[in-house]
């Protein structure tokens, strides 16, 4: 399927395992995702549902003894799941870059911020000119590009801040620096793991605006991992909701938000507070289940207010959740719930 219409990034049946004392845990199970050029995909779920593991699996950075057990990651139609270490390193940071949740702990405290951005350029030989030793200007070109990227992500006075250390930056500036590290090599895909969670609300809005601008100007495709369905609704074209390592609902943002077809998505929506509304927040009862000890059938059944005995029998595929889902395929609205075939879901109170 190596045609020109191959999606930018495709996950096929991706399964990531972690051996534990109580047996093997599937942190990510049979995840299928498709990301096209310039698209923004939101990966939403509670902590521990496997969404960050999906990102690390894409980059081949699952810490041992964990491993990608099954499935494939395709980058522009090329299977990158079984690449050698060196080949994979050429993709990391160059084709697919990642930004992390806590900017202060993610920047190396011992190096200048500018140097940390320049390292991305150096690792991927981005500013190569004539061969060494003729190329004395390489460092100057790299520095110029670093200043350029710092400017682009909105770090004021980048020349002066090139030699600043991470702890001398505010939280928002640190996150901008991290984004600059990600953007330095102009990757095709940006994986953003809760990039705004550690920040103040006003800074959050700035970072989201910055990522949107990057998406529009460079057509960088973004996978945004977040527990905040509200943020995903505002920022993403498509949303995939994960629960206990599986995708339980996926589709275009407006369809998923306006007509959630999985009770878990509906539950998440009821958890979002709305400014100016005195509607009580309804938390989803219970906790995320233990991945080593999942109930049979639907993993959400224990917390689902409309679960029936049949929910604990057998395995459920993603079902078409809208009239055109089958026609649109992976671009359509799908959900993993028996009630899609059984009965109608109660309407959301507005």
């Amino acid at each position: 399927m190596n045609d020109t219409h191959a999606p930018l990034l495709e996950l096929r049946n991706l399964t990531t395992m972690f051996p534990t004392r109580r047996g093997e845990v599937r942190a990510v199970e049979a995840v299928n995702l498709t990301l096209r050029k310039g698209q923004i995909l939101g990966l939403v779920g509670e902590s521990g549902c496997g969404k960050s593991t999906v990102l690390l699996s894409i980059l081949g950075l699952i810490a041992k003894p964990g491993r990608v057990d099954k499935g494939q990651v395709l980058l522009e139609g090329r299977d990158i799941t079984h690449l050698s270490g060196g080949e994979m390193r050429r993709i990391r940071g160059r084709e697919i870059a990642m930004i992390f949740q806590d900017p202060l702990s993610t920047l190396n405290p011992a190096f200048h911020v500018g140097e940390q951005i320049r390292e991305s350029l150096r690792l991927h030989h981005m500013m190569l000119g004539p061969p060494w030793p003729l190329d004395r200007a390489k460092k100057a070109r790299e520095k110029k590009r670093v200043i350029e990227v710092m400017q682009e992500v909105g770090i004021p006075a980048p020349e002066a801040r090139y030699k600043a250390y991470p702890h001398q930056f505010s939280g928002g500036m640190q996150q901008r620096a991290l984004i600059a590290i990600g953007l330095a090599c102009q990757p095709k895909v940006l994986l953003a793991d809760e990039p705004t969670t550690a920040l103040d609300v006003t800074i959050q809005a700035q970072i989201v605006a910055l990522m949107r601008r990057i998406n529009q100007e460079h057509h960088t495709a973004i996978i945004l991992v977040t527990h905040d369905l509200g943020l995903a609704a505002e920022f993403c074209d498509h949303i995939a909701v994960m629960y206990a390592g599986r995708i339980v609902e996926i589709g275009p943002t407006d369809q998923v938000i306006e007509e959630p077809r999985h009770p878990y998505t509906a539950g998440l929506l009821r958890c979002i507070p709305h400014v100016g509304e005195r509607r009580a927040i309804e938390p989803i009862p219970g906790n995320v289940p233990d991945l080593a000890d999942l109930p049979p059938g639907c993993a959400f059944s224990l917390r689902c207010d409309s679960a029936r005995p049949v929910c604990n029998e057998g395995f459920f595929r993603l079902q078409p959740a809208s009239a055109d889902a089958v026609k649109r395929g992976e671009g359509g609205h799908w959900a993993r719930c028996l009630r899609l075939t059984d009965y109608q879901m109660p309407a959301l109170e507005d």
Partner: peptide
């Protein structure tokens, strides 16, 4: 630590990750 994870995500080889990013700290 997170910054070692970032160094790997940048595409740094294991020697660079250990000798530069980790040992220095």
């Amino acid at each position: 630590s997170d910054y070692v994870k970032l160094a790997r995500a940048k595409g740094a080889g294991e020697t660079t990750v250990v000798m530069k990013h980790a040992v220095r700290n």
